[in-house]
């Protein structure tokens, strides 16, 4: 069996060299747009005045830190919902400070599917962060190989290298964790995006009707319906909501500002249980003193303020933040 001992040994040595080179040369070049950079920053940040913004890519493209205050940092990340925000919030609430926390939330915020929503690359490098290791393990998202030098970045190398390309350009503004694009796809392309959403709504209706009539769906149709329901409806997950409320209540000194950011009308068209969303926001505003909900879902923005049917562009973010700043001024200062 010595036949493969030397090749394996050599491969192991090369992997370790690559691993070390990666840590020394690549990781330090991450920008404040990189998810893992944000997680590390949050874990190490001790400024008592910093106001963190947590959220998904919608949050990343909606909250301009410069517009909201000098101490605001946008920790929003792509695909980030409460599966990840719980960890960020726990970390932030454990700090000895009184600054408010802004959280972008949307219809999918309370979807609980750790396998899909907790992106492991977000939490790299994890070796020096026991709390991260513990959190991933608790959510069954820790692969043992991630603790083994040489292979711990398996599946993530390309993403890290890609993230190095994210540099500011004349139409791409990076501002303390936020990313704002000065781009409008044009009427034709935007209509294509919105039509696609309306087709999704139609498809969902069709599949739901078939399923309700007792006819079985194929495996792929079943998966599709599941996906469509998650994409279109408000995920009213009682357990997740209660967990969040308990965390907020246990830290009465921290104001939590929940902001439902501007959405394109096509994105809300398929939202069947919108009343649940309003009920929840009313409940937060009325029953939990340090929890404030702001609804900008119908914020009037023309199509030219959208980058696509899910995200606003730089102009949209500017208009939104101008109003948001006025509305939140009394809570932020």
């Amino acid at each position: 069996m010595l036949l493969f001992f030397y090749p394996l040994l050599l491969a192991g040595v090369i992997a370790l060299v690559i691993d070390q080179s990666f840590e020394v040369f690549v990781l330090p070049k991450r920008t404040d747009l990189d998810n893992s950079f944000k997680v590390e920053r949050l874990l190490g940040e001790t400024d008592p005045k910093e106001i963190p913004v947590f959220g998904s890519s919608k949050g990343r493209s909606s909250f301009i830190p410069d517009s909201l205050g000098e101490t605001v940092f946008n920790y929003s990340m792509q695909k980030c919902n409460f599966d990840v925000i719980f960890f960020l919030l726990e970390t932030e609430l454990a700090k000895d400070k009184d600054a408010p926390i802004i959280i972008e939330f949307n219809a999918r915020s309370f979807v609980h599917r750790p396998q899909h929503t907790i992106d492991l690359a977000t939490f790299m490098p994890i070796k020096n962060n026991p709390s991260v290791v513990e959190y991933l393990a608790a959510n069954d998202r820790l692969d043992n190989f991630q603790l083994v030098p040489g292979v711990r970045y398996y599946g993530s190398y390309v993403r890290y290298i890609r993230s190095l390309n994210r540099k500011e350009t004349p139409n791409k503004i990076i501002n303390r964790g936020g990313l704002f694009i000065d781009y409008y796809p044009g009427d034709r392309l935007l209509r294509r995006f919105t039509d696609s959403r309306y087709k999704m709504i139609e498809k969902r209706e069709e599949l739901e009707t078939r399923a309700a009539s007792g006819k079985p769906l194929t495996y792929m149709e079943d998966q599709m319906l599941d996906q469509l329901q998650i994409s279109l409806d408000f995920a009213y997950n009682k357990d997740r909501i209660k967990k969040f409320e308990d965390m907020v209540k246990s830290h009465p000194n921290r104001d939590i500002l929940m902001v439902f950011t501007p959405h394109h009308p096509s994105e809300l068209a398929g939202l069947k249980n919108r009343e649940k969303l309003y009920e929840l926001m009313d409940h937060w505003n009325e029953d939990i003193p340090n929890l404030y909900a702001f609804d900008y879902s119908d914020f009037p923005l023309p199509d030219s303020c959208f980058k696509n049917s899910s995200h606003i562009n730089l102009e949209g973010a500017r208009r939104f933040c101008a109003v948001l700043n006025d509305d939140l001024a009394h809570l932020l200062n």
Binding site: A11, I14, A15, L120, D143, V151, Y154, Y157, V158
Partner: peptide
């Protein structure tokens, strides 16, 4: 090495 570097998890 290629599998470790470029493989998807």
């Amino acid at each position: 090495i290629i599998i470790v570097l470029l493989g998807q998890n």
